[in-house]
Design a protein around this nucleic acid. Sequence first.
DNA 1: TAGATTGTTAATCGATTAACAATC
DNA 2: TAGATTGTTAATCGATTAACAATC
Lengths: 214, 214
Amino acid sequence: MANEKKISFEVIKRLPRYYRYLGELKSNNITRISSKELSRRMNVTASQIRQDLNCFGGFGQQGYGYNVEDLHEAIGDILGLNNGHKTIIVGAGNLGRALANYKSFEKRGFKLVGIFDINNIKIGQNIAGLDVLDFNEAEKYIPDLAPDIAIITVPKEAAGSVAKKVISLGIKGLLNFSYTDIDVPDGVEIENVHLSDSLMTLSYKLEQQKKLNQ
Amino acid sequence: MANEKKISFEVIKRLPRYYRYLGELKSNNITRISSKELSRRMNVTASQIRQDLNCFGGFGQQGYGYNVEDLHEAIGDILGLNNGHKTIIVGAGNLGRALANYKSFEKRGFKLVGIFDINNIKIGQNIAGLDVLDFNEAEKYIPDLAPDIAIITVPKEAAGSVAKKVISLGIKGLLNFSYTDIDVPDGVEIENVHLSDSLMTLSYKLEQQKKLNQ
DNA sequence: TAGATTGTTAATCGATTAACAATC
DNA sequence: TAGATTGTTAATCGATTAACAATC
């Protein structure tokens, strides 16, 4: 019944980038694009683009290329951006606040429905139009809010227990920004994002440059 | 002269994670670890760990394993974390503020020396102990601050020109958070970080789960 | 139709894993 | 010494690229 061909996560990770470039093309009123031209702009091979897209079906047309708007929407569908995912943020610190006000999330169809913290000073404060709720009373709020995704921006010491709690309340997707990896049970999905990691790999690259110039 | 074996970026991207786990072990007063035990904790193969580490030299000892503290420091060195990289942030919006107050960066040896914006309301405000400076007068400040790295948290429309400006002032490393890819000339390094990308791949995973459960 | 460009198969390349001799 | 575990070579696996027939 289901389409059985296993699609590698390498391919999935490239989809948001295709999505972004297609969005750009769309706002520039470009209606069609060939894999060759897109490859030139994105700095990847045309072959890879065609392979990637063909994992999901034949979006293109021989002799013509791809319809920008159709392809943009198709990738959005594949990524599940048109499902109106409801999200909460746990941790109303600086990063939590920044993400709450982050317009990109909203634009890609993610709707923020709650912000939580355990700090009395923060509880009740208004962030991005929402009053910060007491995470110690999570079971009181979360079932009604019914979010799909929890964005975790708490200190690493608290990350594990926060994850456990929200999972127990039925949340199926976690985006973890705390400086630790969180493991989740089967049926729950997680993406661990470590902001300092990219700063470190950047640092490595600078190191190499420096050596080259010596 | 130089060590000529090319190390793949796949390996480099894993280093921050090794670094983090070793840091954890260290704070738990664990002094030695075998690739097998580390592989169990990190959920990777022992073989990969040994291969990765051996790109940089023989840190281990047969029959013993690896000395946690030594290895932690060695990886820090490889990543260039002990160089006291000076950084600036361009864009004092929510994300810029959050990153300015982000303790992880400081802890890994990155020192914030300046915050810039072009908005008069923000200029002069104090963030993380620094007065926000006018980016329109970047050439007045940046040569003295002499940063290695610029963290770019401006809207995508401004990202390109901000990059061009800081590169012209001698900055060699860019960490770009704006929702566009920035290309840089030879000799300059960049890491593009797109926060919504991981939210999108998470959304994809949720989509797959949903299909499974139908 | 002729030209362009896809979809897809085959070839290549690189990364991961397995295996084991070296050695602490 | 015997046991453990590395460093490293070889085997496997998977991802990327090249090539081209199909087709718009």
